[in-house]
Computed example of a mutant assay.
Amino acid sequence: MPFLKANDELHGFTGSAEVFKRNVDALSKNHFVLVPDLRGHGNSDKPKAGYHVARLALDLKNFIDHFQFQEGKISAIGTSLGAAIIWCYCELFSTKAFSRVIFVDQAPLQSYLSDWGPEYGNRGCNSPEALRTMQQTLEKDPKTAHLGTISACLGYRSHPRPGDPTAGSKEWEDDEAFFLEEALKGDGWWYGKLMADHTANDWRYSIVQNFGLRSGSKTQVLVIASSRSGCFPAAGPLKVVDLVNGGSEQVLAKGVNVEWGGHWCYWEQPKMFNELVLDFLT
Rank of each mutant, 00 (worst) to 15 (best):
L4S: 15
L10W: 10
F13N: 12
F13P: 08
F13T: 07
S16R: 14
V19H: 06
F20N: 07
R22D: 14
A26M: 11
A26Q: 10
S28T: 09
N30D: 12
H31C: 10
D37F: 04
L38K: 10
R39D: 00
S44W: 04
A49V: 10
G50C: 00
Y51M: 09
H52Q: 06
L58W: 09
E71N: 15
L81S: 02
I85N: 00
I85P: 06
E91N: 08
A97H: 11
A107D: 00
P108G: 04
S111N: 12
S114R: 05
E119M: 11
E119H: 09
Y120E: 05
G121E: 01
C125Q: 08
P128N: 09
E129Y: 09
A130E: 01
L131T: 00
E139V: 15
A145M: 08
T149F: 14
C153R: 10
L154P: 07
G155F: 01
Y156R: 09
H159G: 03
R161D: 11
T166V: 15
W172V: 13
D174H: 13
A177S: 11
K185Y: 02
W189E: 15
W190A: 15
G192W: 01
K193R: 10
L194W: 05
M195L: 12
N201R: 13
W203G: 03
R204D: 00
S206W: 05
F211P: 00
G212H: 06
R214I: 09
S215M: 03
V223I: 05
P233A: 01
P237F: 07
P237E: 02
V240S: 03
D242E: 04
V244N: 00
N245F: 00
K254Y: 02
V258K: 02
W264D: 04
E275T: 10
L278G: 07
